[in-house]
């Protein structure tokens, strides 16, 4: 099984970190992973994206042409990556910011009100984990446990206290998918 994941959004939304967390978690599960950032002359507020491949087999190209999963956190990223999602793939949309709607009927669309859920949890900074929760629940690419373990490893001492909130965020994201808040492709 190979997951080709593109995460895209504004610089500062945590795009690179989300990708790194997925790659790290994949590695802890002994999967093959690669993490490739867009590294043009990016700046805060500009758009950034990262390509993460998680695979049972050794990875050929780390460049993703047609993602099996695109996680889009803002409108420009939606416009850029929604058309590229592989047929039968998944588009996960940050509904709190993105007001565009996918007209494609050959992909699964999951819309996640990240900011609303994160503020209910009481920590706006865990918005990314809400999205990741929805992603891993739907794709089963990696386990929630691996994400939490990876967070413990990648977060500095000073930020370890954020782990419970992230755990809750992952669960809230997952429950959206469990509750069927998903637009499935028309067979």
């Amino acid at each position: 099984m190979m997951h080709e994941i593109v995460i895209a959004g504004f610089g500062g939304q945590g795009v690179m970190s989300m990708g790194q967390l997925l790659a790290y978690a994949g590695m802890t599960e002994n999967k093959h992973v690669s993490w490739l950032p867009s590294y043009g002359p990016e700046q805060r507020g500009g758009t950034a994206n990262v390509s993460v491949v998680i695979s049972d087999e050794p990875i050929g190209s780390p460049v993703i042409q047609n993602p099996s999963v695109a996680i889009v956190l803002n409108n420009p990223s939606f416009e850029k990556f929604e058309p590229t999602v592989k047929k039968g793939g998944v588009l996960i949309v940050n509904k709190s910011i993105v007001d565009l709607k996918s007209k494609r009927n050959d992909i699964t669309v999951i819309e996640v009100p990240t900011a609303e859920i994160a503020s209910e949890i009481g920590s706006p900074r865990v918005a990314g984990s809400v999205i990741l929760g929805a992603f891993i629940q739907h794709s089963k690419a990696i386990s929630k446990k691996s994400i939490i373990e990876s967070l413990k490893n990648v977060l500095s001492e000073r930020k370890q206290h954020l782990i419970p909130a992230n755990e809750e965020a992952l669960e809230r994201g997952a429950s959206l998918v469990i509750n069927g808040d998903v637009k499935k492709p028309i067979a």
Binding site: M27, L36, P37, P62
Partner: peptide, 10 residues
């Protein structure tokens, strides 16, 4: 090349 320098792998 820049891709090899910037990418991460285990």
């Amino acid at each position: 090349d820049g891709m090899l320098g910037q990418m991460m792998e285990p």
